[in-house]
Amino acid sequence: MSRKFTPKVVTANHLLEGDAVWLTADDQWTPHMHKAELIEDEAHAQLRLLHAEQQPDIVVGAYLADARAGDNGPEPTHFREAFRTRGPSNYAHGKQAEAGNV
């Protein structure tokens, strides 16, 4: 029995920067999860993941992560993915440090 498909985003790390990035609907890689394409269909998700995996010169380790629709776009459902949108909790490094400039 197949489980009900939960919405996904395609995410990876940027090859040069190492930073977490997400795939947008118009085929860009964004450092902001809320700009990602929220994928509600399983077959489409697989196609988008394949698309990501064909860009090894831009990203590393692409995968599908669970997400839900939020007011500003896709939001994480798991704490690990939430940390990836911010950075570490012990210093204001990573994305949270740049948040003021967005």
Binding site: N13, L15, L16, E17, G18, D19, A20, P56, D57, V60, G61, R80, F83, R84, G87, P88, H93, G94, K95
Partner: peptide, 28 residues
């Protein structure tokens, strides 16, 4: 060669690990 695209990540990963380079949650 990795940045040029001559090496895939599958080829490069064992080489970078031999030199202590990991890819973590937010960065290398």
């Amino acid at each position: 060669r990795r940045i040029d695209g001559a090496l895939t990540e599958d080829e490069f990963k064992p080489l970078r690990l031999m030199n202590g380079l990991y890819l973590q949650l937010h960065a290398y």
